[in-house]
């Protein structure tokens, strides 16, 4: 689980780039979001709002591109392997993930000693990664629902009415940001807990044995 090699086949250059875009946009979104929530220093609101909107469009386009690319780009099928297959297959639950969900949970709760067999991604990992897709789109939806130019569109005003007004939508948008923050904390922790080889490959595209 931890001692395997990290080859470029695991994360082809295109996904290294989309990952960078995600990271930069997420940092910009969270920072500008915090600022819009409560401007903790002066003179930055216009820039913060501009940053927030641009980063959101970029991350949505990036996510959509990433999903489409998953059907065309080939990635490694296993940890430490150069054997590749269409990325979407390695993204969705696979035969190797079957019956492993509770075992993975047990492993992380120290209720078993050996690491579990998994595909390129483990059960928990796949659930988390897949969940970020609807969450990101939902985040965009809640954002548009409190964004001046679009909040009166039927698509968004209907949602605002459903949650009981724009204030509640704001609070949902705020809490969802924390879902992303907590996700990122766990993601960064689990990816690098054994060693920093995963970061080397995903950020610098440097292989390690």
């Amino acid at each position: 689980m931890a001692g395997h090699a990290h080859y470029r086949e695991a994360h082809p250059l295109v996904f290294v780039i989309t990952h960078w875009i995600n990271l930069i946009c997420m940092i910009m979104l969270a920072f500008s979001g915090f600022y819009i929530h409560y401007p903790f220093f002066g003179g930055f609101m216009g820039v913060a709002r501009g940053m927030h909107f641009v980063a959101m469009y970029v991350i949505i386009i990036n996510l959509t591109f990433r999903i489409i690319a998953a059907f065309f780009v080939k990635t490694a099928t296993d940890l430490g392997s150069r054997q590749v297959d269409t990325d979407i297959k390695n993204w969705l639950p696979q035969e190797k993930n079957k019956h492993q969900f509770f075992e993975t949970v047990k492993y992380y709760l120290f209720m078993r000693k050996e690491a579990v067999i998994s595909a390129k991604y483990g059960s928990l990992q796949k659930i988390a990664y897949l969940a970020t897709i609807p969450l990101t789109y939902l985040m965009a939806y809640t954002g548009f629902a409190i964004y001046g130019p679009t909040m009166t569109w039927g698509l968004f005003s209907g949602g605002v009415e459903m949650v009981g007004g724009p204030m509640n939508m704001r609070i949902i948008h705020y809490f969802m940001m924390w879902v992303f923050i907590v996700f990122t904390m766990i993601h960064a922790y689990l990816a690098n807990i054994y060693n920093f080889k995963p970061s080397k490959i995903i950020f610098a595209w440097k292989e390690s044995e």
């Binding site: 689980m1 931890a2 079957k98 019956h99 492993q100 050996e114 690491a115 067999i117 807990i193 054994y194």
Partner: peptide, 21 residues
């Protein structure tokens, strides 16, 4: 906890040879 359990190191913990199931 991971450190105490000896999972952190160049090789990490051993992986099971077959699924428990």
């Amino acid at each position: 906890g991971m450190k105490a359990a000896g999972r952190i190191g160049p090789d990490g913990p051993p992986t099971e040879t077959a699924k428990k199931h």
